[in-house]
Nucleic acid binder design. Sequence first.
DNA 1: CAACGACGGTACGGTTGCGTCCCGACGTGT
DNA 2: ACACGTCGGGACGCAACCGTACCGTCGTTG
Lengths: 230, 230
Amino acid sequence: MTTEKRRAPAGAAVLRGEITTAIRRALMQELAAVGYGRLSIEAVARRAGVSKTAIYRRWSSKLDLVLEIVAAAAHGKLPALDTGTLRGDLALLFQAVAHALRHPLASQIIPDLLAEAARNPTIDQTLRQVLHARQQDIGGRLVAHAVQRGELPADTDPDAAVDLIVGPLYWRLAIARLPLTDSYLDNLVESVAVGLGADAALPHPRTPPIGLTGRPTPAEPGTGDAVPLR
Amino acid sequence: MTTEKRRAPAGAAVLRGEITTAIRRALMQELAAVGYGRLSIEAVARRAGVSKTAIYRRWSSKLDLVLEIVAAAAHGKLPALDTGTLRGDLALLFQAVAHALRHPLASQIIPDLLAEAARNPTIDQTLRQVLHARQQDIGGRLVAHAVQRGELPADTDPDAAVDLIVGPLYWRLAIARLPLTDSYLDNLVESVAVGLGADAALPHPRTPPIGLTGRPTPAEPGTGDAVPLR
DNA sequence: CAACGACGGTACGGTTGCGTCCCGACGTGT
DNA sequence: ACACGTCGGGACGCAACCGTACCGTCGTTG
């Protein structure tokens, strides 16, 4: 009976991509403007210039809508992270994170959804997949590379490293919302590198770590040989 | 006419403190449960077991209610922070922060309000007064003490230091929501101290910095003499 | 002891949003 | 050229919440 597929949707009976795009954009703007808690489908439709039906045909609920679109947006490009040095990798990663968080939409949406994840298990799960897992992946590789090169001790905890790497930058950009200068980033790279256990600055003689004005590195600035375990 | 004050409120005509307390508690719970965006006065009144009027008599609006209560709650006690060493101060501060953020209410309310502050100037202003200013104050003193002792370079940027200090812990507790062990805290203290520009571990020979297993400190483990500026 | 006056609680109109149903419009495939 | 079937849009019933007005209650003060 209904197993017979009559015909494939065609002509005017196919979803118009432009409208889907408009909904996506409107959702982002609404999410940034009022947050997930106050988000209303009506407002999204209004802002997108479409009808509510247009949204309900595509997504079954507000949660579906947000999850799908946020997950898609988070699947953006990510740097390769193989500059050859720990500090190079950190600088590249920081630049990418800073660039992403400079986007006013992202800097409002991300903290909002992260807060919402604390009470909505589905959002929490999705964010962990598209954000945390990715961060752990990137952080893990970054650390692994550095360990291979001998820049970091072998038993570096990747999770703790991720905290130390993304924590300060996220705090400054998304929470404190203080300005971010190039010299600040340089200092942060050095601070995090040293904090992770790397030898003091050698590849960046121009900018010392945070507040540290050219402390003479007492250790041999040598070849970054392996950590003498134990 | 009306300039004549008839009588001071007395008897049943005075606000009952128990009800005010119940409203405060209910607000916290509601705030944690649904967030600021979805917060409704009706739900607060329902949870507190009082009438809406009881709330409107005390606060003029939802914003007033939240601001007053949150500001009051944030005026809690804070440690003295004068243990005599940078690492001691850090450990004490981390313990305090961790204790505060372990509170399930706080760990849900704070990120939520911080996200809301991005779009609500009044909330932003209040939070800056009761949270950021306090953090900058604490961080500033912590850094100043360390500089005085010669543990940190003199030109340490207090703002950047605050980022490095609170960022990782906030990230782990409020965002990633990963467990927090004592050894993790020990490692974090060491990492942050070194990242800020302190000499490598001397007062904590038991736990190396994150992932660093007993790298021999090449520098003289000496008396923490002043940083050789320039 | 009686009157006062703000108390807490209920009820109300108005507003907003949800999710659904029905409608005419439209482009493709037969 | 016609029929098909989904499209987008407007309208509807339902539910929740806001902010206020009104009402009986209660402890204090004169």
